[in-house]
Design a protein around this nucleic acid. Sequence first.
DNA 1: ATCCCGCCATGAAACGTTTCATTATCAAGT
DNA 2: ACTTGATAATGAAACGTTTCATGGCGGGAT
Lengths: 354, 354
Amino acid sequence: MTQQMRDSRAPSAKDPSVKDVAAAAGVSLGTVSNVLNRPSTVSAATRQRVERAMSELGFVRNESARQLRAGRSRALAYVMLDGGNPFFHDVAAGIEPAAEAAGLSLFVCNSDGRADREARHLDLLVQQRVQGILLTPVDPDAPHLAEISRRGIPLVMVGRSNRAGDRCSVTVDDVSGGRIAAEHLVDRGHRRIAFVGGPDSIGQVRDRLRGAREIWAEYGRLAEDLIHLPTEALTVGEGRAAGERLAGLPSRRRPTAAFCANDLLALGLLQHAVSVGLRVPDDLAIIGYDDIDFAAAAAVPLTSVRQPRRELGRTAARLVLDEAADPGHRHEEAAFAPVLVARASTGTIRSHAG
Amino acid sequence: MTQQMRDSRAPSAKDPSVKDVAAAAGVSLGTVSNVLNRPSTVSAATRQRVERAMSELGFVRNESARQLRAGRSRALAYVMLDGGNPFFHDVAAGIEPAAEAAGLSLFVCNSDGRADREARHLDLLVQQRVQGILLTPVDPDAPHLAEISRRGIPLVMVGRSNRAGDRCSVTVDDVSGGRIAAEHLVDRGHRRIAFVGGPDSIGQVRDRLRGAREIWAEYGRLAEDLIHLPTEALTVGEGRAAGERLAGLPSRRRPTAAFCANDLLALGLLQHAVSVGLRVPDDLAIIGYDDIDFAAAAAVPLTSVRQPRRELGRTAARLVLDEAADPGHRHEEAAFAPVLVARASTGTIRSHAG
DNA sequence: ATCCCGCCATGAAACGTTTCATTATCAAGT
DNA sequence: ACTTGATAATGAAACGTTTCATGGCGGGAT
């Protein structure tokens, strides 16, 4: 027996508009608008009559019309680099309340590391006339970004600034982060370490490696004792694969610690280590980057270099809103310092005999 | 020295419209529109002239105006229940390509388990006149959902159907999932197990527990040997806390295995177990639910009950698009079967002496 | 020569909102 | 009685797009 829907609305009925409300309440269209936007200018009696009509008709403002009239949408957008990495969702979670406080919606898009997808998303966002765009870019110097700025749309880079520095950005110093991580390993007595990460096209990866190398040199270690294990992506699977290669090294070349370019790699590496019976940190110390929630939640809690993810989002939102509101806006580069969060995965101090 | 921006656009210049393009190309406004929407009806020469004008002026369609004219937006929305749980992002990742294939954008919102936030998001989405809404609801029978349907907006429930069943839904049978998990533990020889999960207000949690109890009874086990450890949320932290309580039980009452209502709880429990030196699975077997990527990536890879996350999203998108397009649409309840993914965290067969 | 048809291009109308200059009403002050 | 001012309500215009009925034009068939 088929369920008979007694639907209170014919499927094709169209939404009531301000005009319908005005008619129902016996007032002019402008008055309805006043009730919506400047209720204090409307007498109490009329206001109530209009409000009653609204709820009876089930009136809902049409956002498209508002936007058309206003000339721009009431939305912000964040285009993230990797939807599979919780780090970016946490950045987004930092943006959201700021957007909400400003009465704006937030579009969240994922470029998935692909320039074409990024471009497509940006295209759509420009069509939407969003008030501002936050972006963790595939390539911070790509020409289509300049195009956005030229249109006058506020654009804030998150996690990477462009070469020219002619726009706002919110960054965490990755070279410094690399130094912190490497120094932590040096402090723990490690004399041969690996850097796990790639591809090189990602600026963050390059910088983190650079920082590590700096420290390594400053402590007088040999360059060849910092082994770069390149990966094709920053994923758990690649981390596992790197573990295989690590295990394949002849034992005198095998590092006692690994610095991974992000936490996903570190988790993959950790998993591989555990699966082949290596003890972490005793046989292999591991340090990640980003300090996503799952780093702390790992079975061997992961030492990591924390980026203030929510703060990053919050600040970026502040900058983009400022640029959208203030014609005299000066571009600003907000830089945060990464901090080491030491946990069990690098726990013990190694003896010199190590 | 301050950088002097020689900007090619005055900051207050407004976007060129079809009208401007028409003027620049020396054609009528309707012709420009034809170039955009029905290029075959325009002669090659005119078309090129118009296209040239467009790119010279930097014309970009105004989506608000299109939407206003069309009467509805070109977007779908997904309101997820918990942005901190990768499961929902994976569902979203399943929706996206389907939306894209239909030429629609996807709004992703997060209710964070709070009815008020859910209501607010839905409100905004109705104002946007989205073509359809996918929702993992806080409460599938909440009255404001009926309101959406009454408006004629396609609404598909993801992961939970409402009582009346008068709309489309995409579900995975949670009772069956609970049975599968519990049976797996029974198979492994466990005679005393815990169910970790809560709050009870979440239907999925209730169902999974119910399934576990069914199996437990069918195998003739005592109800008191299935201990319910309630949690206040489905998070890693709560999983850790549950671990504390588990450890606090007198040893003759202590379970040898735990079935967690989701993977986040399981990861937290796993972490606690490892931190107090319990071996997993030997001292404590753990099984999670959802099979998020981090379950497989855990140091002790987590046995879990898999829900086809992307498939869930894809199917939900298909249903909502069908409802939006087809006036004769019949509501459909797509149900998927959960499947057990056995990994190391429940690895060994227990001896009867256990 | 006339008619018809296909091909292009046209421009007015409509979508639903907000704004703003205008008008109506009425009470208070002279 | 007349002005002033405040308070309410009005309705036309504008935002940028798409649609659609209309019309011009040239060529082929009658």
